[in-house]
């Protein structure tokens, strides 16, 4: 009798693990690009192709993390200045978003793009800010695709652009992100 109970408990736990493993999807190879170029000046643009993200399919909770040193620029010097002078990536090595997709129902997702709003906290350069941004969700064969585009202000995150270069760097930074979660 006791043996049987143990078996049931074990089976129950196994089913639970299987179910809970099902409800989260993630990736370690999401893409984030940002651009802060000014017309007629050299492009200020970088890409990070190893952004990680996790989405809880039941609750719509979403988290994403980009390592600052993973942003690659065309020009090595620009990358160095970005890391050392602006982002201080040795002290603040990551940018993190933690939030939740408003009104997310995984069963309602389809192969046509749906617009949601994701609300949460963005932490960049050690400073946390509440933001809400539109996010487009599509169910593809490869997984759940998320895309978003939004603007950020460096000053909101305590990032100072010296006046010498301020005419070469836009006030608003356009960020684009793309993930395929599996």
């Amino acid at each position: 009798m006791k043996n049987k109970t143990t078996w049931y408990v074990a089976l129950f736990l196994l089913v639970c693990t299987a179910l809970s493993a099902q409800k989260k999807v993630g990736t370690k190879s999401g893409n984030i690009t940002f651009e802060a170029s000014m017309p007629s000046f050299e492009e200020v643009e970088a890409i990070n192709e190893n952004v990680s993200a996790i989405l809880n399919m039941e609750t719509g909770e979403f988290a994403s993390l980009a390592l600052i040193k993973g942003f690659r620029f065309k020009r090595a010097l620009m990358e160095e200045h970005f890391n050392e002078n602006y982002m201080e990536s040795h002290t603040y090595p990551k940018a993190v978003f933690k939030g939740s997709i408003d009104g997310f129902i995984s069963e309602a997702l389809s192969s046509s793009e749906q617009r949601f709003v994701v609300i949460g906290k963005m932490t960049i350069h050690g400073i946390e800010k509440e933001i809400s941004i539109p996010i487009y969700v599509t169910r593809l064969e490869e997984g759940i695709q998320l895309t978003t585009k939004f603007t950020l202000l460096p000053e909101d995150f305590g990032i100072e652009i010296p006046s010498v270069v301020s005419n070469k760097i836009a006030d608003e930074v356009v960020v684009e992100a793309h993930y395929i979660l599996k």
Binding site: N50, S52, L65, L67, K69, G70, K94
Partner: peptide, 16 residues
Amino acid sequence: GRCVGYDELFEQVQMD
């Protein structure tokens, strides 16, 4: 490779 940092979401170190 180059050590990029620690990814706390997956609890892994990233190298590129």
